[in-house]
Design a protein around this nucleic acid. Structure first.
Lengths: 328, 328
DNA sequence: ATCAACATCACAAACGTTTGTGTTTTACTA
DNA sequence: TAGTAAAACACAAACGTTTGTGATGTTGAT
């Protein structure tokens, strides 16, 4: 049905081999004249290459798969932008698959699809695999890289911010502003990411001789609702004078709930968020944030994939900075 | 290198044909005993099917491609969710490609990638193709469907809200609330979508005997900044008492700028948004919105693809409703 | 015992490319 | 003119499946 390389060959009076070499831009295998002829008839016939056939014979693919998990947070767009840019420069195609929220079933399916297609590389943003899926990925013999997540298994390569430092610096920033009773909200305390931020928070408090109060830390899942719930926990007359929320949306949740309680921000309560997406400057008051370099994460992730298998993938931190806006 | 069905065949002492039939779940071609044996050795060897080979020989694919354009607005997630759900029920895989913002180059590349892979269907969300890319798509002989957009070329199937009615009903809603000087902001007036909404706005004004003022309509591109700019246009002491912004983000832009001007919402200025994503209930005051059924768009889009080629794809409207919150 | 009917399986072609190697043509040298 | 090296091309195998068809084995009825 569809027009193949053979059709072109017949029309142009050459062999399929020549057509293939012309169309895939190999040099020094044909004359300029036949090249022109081949290209013309290819265009005339409306030829589209059959990628399945190409990948079957070459046993490699030019697509990078990005598996993204979370839609509860909203930074993945930036990461994907970074990936796209870097991919574009190397003539790679990127496809994105959603793997649900902590849904091992969907994660498995996403993994299988990309492995069966033997993509060139797999980028996993904010997804935490269980051990069977982890095995699936590792045994697939395809370069991979985790993004925006810290894993228990330090053998796996990931690129993210230094979560301990995020917790530490955010806390220190608030302490420097005169706060001593600081809440820590909405992080997933079962995740390494959340745990590290909490450790940083603890350390910063300790380093400054400040008391801790377990009621000040409220776990969650980085979602808006978790911010709301945390604030409800703190109550109408909160003991804390500042809170660090582990995502922009969560921070908005605590702000909204605080305002519903009649609290003024930042006068009555300072709020600081982690992520620093565009949301921070869209809400009022604008959110002071620990701003991560998500775009950069994407870029570096791609670079790791591309440089393989020359070098094995390594974990790395991307920098972050604190951007002062209005909420502190 | 990788393990193939031939390896399994050899190990299990059967033919590759039998392995294939067992693994792809064909019935009445083998005994239960060999089936078990085959499956076991397949698992033991860690077999992963080679999709390239499968697609090459079957000449069909189980993947749905979603090409999304806009990251300036934020409704695509809902559409994709709808697509995913419907896809999941039919054991289809969905891959997502970003095609930039009105970037014909990237659109072409995205189209070519999916066409070369001869995917089962193509869903285009909020992308408007130029005529050459349009030809590419149409000639590819792959079912396709546009989502969340109204096209000039009525031959192309699209599923979206009735934009004229959106403009009309939003305007009427504000009129019923007592407003007579109503702004219309941030829609892309070069797009059919924007134009239709504007027509609806005009019609509603006319039907209620209200004057129009061309200074009340400010075009844009549905972005946050367009909302800000529109409000700047209206000024510190705006003539309009209400404004319809053509996206949630744009509406937030209007609100923020209005508040920067010291205006109270909704007392001094009512703001109404189109889209109705989660953002509406996250900002303060919460945004009254024309809420579209994006999830439903995704579902219906997939259904159209699936039902092809039994029926040719048709255009359709998904319903919308006005949800009152705090901004009017 | 014969034979049909069916169950179970193996053979082999086909899908559309790429690519190593062989073959023809061209161009040039002596 | 003969010979040769290089350029231009064609042949054919291979990639890993699916699937139509033919081969073999088994069962049961007559």
């Amino acid at each position: 049905m569809a027009v193949t390389i053979k059709d072109i060959a017949k029309q142009a009076g050459v062999s399929p081999a020549t057509v293939s070499r012309v169309l895939s831009g190999q040099v020094a295998f044909y004359s300029e004249k036949t090249a022109k002829k081949v290209k013309k008839t290819a265009k005339k016939l409306g030829y589209q290459k059959n990628t399945a056939a190409v990948e079957l014979v070459t046993r490699r693919s030019k697509v990078i798969a990005v598996i993204v998990s979370s839609t509860k947070t909203n930074f993945s767009d930036q990461i994907i932008d970074g990936i796209q840019q870097e991919a574009g420069e190397h003539d790679l195609n990127v496809i994105i698959l959603y793997a649900g929220e902590k849904d091992p079933q969907m994660e498995r399916k996403a993994l299988e699809t990309v492995i069966e297609r033997s993509v060139m590389g797999i980028l996993l943003v904010a997804v935490n695999l269980n051990s069977v899926n982890e095995n699936l990925l590792v045994n697939a013999n395809i370069p991979y890289q985790f993004l925006s997540i810290t894993l228990k298994n330090r053998k796996l390569p990931f690129i993210t911010s230094d979560d301990f430092q995020i917790g530490y610096q955010a806390t220190k920033y608030l302490i420097d502003k005169g706060h001593s009773k600081i809440g820590f909200a909405a992080a997933d305390l079962d995740s390494v990411t959340g745990q590290l931020r909490l450790d940083g928070y603890h350390q910063a408090m300790a380093d400054n001789g400040l008391q801790l109060n377990s009621a000040w830390v409220c776990g969650g899942d980085f979602a808006y609702e978790d911010g709301v719930n945390a604030m409800k926990q703190y109550g109408r007359e909160p003991e804390v004078t500042a809170v660090i929320a582990s995502s922009d949306l969560a921070a908005i949740g605590v702000m909204n709930q605080a305002q519903d309680y009649g609290l003024k921000i930042p006068a009555d309560l300072a709020v600081m968020s982690v992520d620093g997406t565009k949301l921070c400057s869209i809400v009022r008051p604008q959110l002071t944030s620990v701003t991560q370099e998500f775009f950069e994460m994407g870029v570096r992730g791609m670079q790791q994939i591309i440089s393989q298998p020359t070098k094995a993938a390594k974990s790395a931190f991307t920098p972050f900075k604190i951007i002062a806006r209005q909420s502190v």
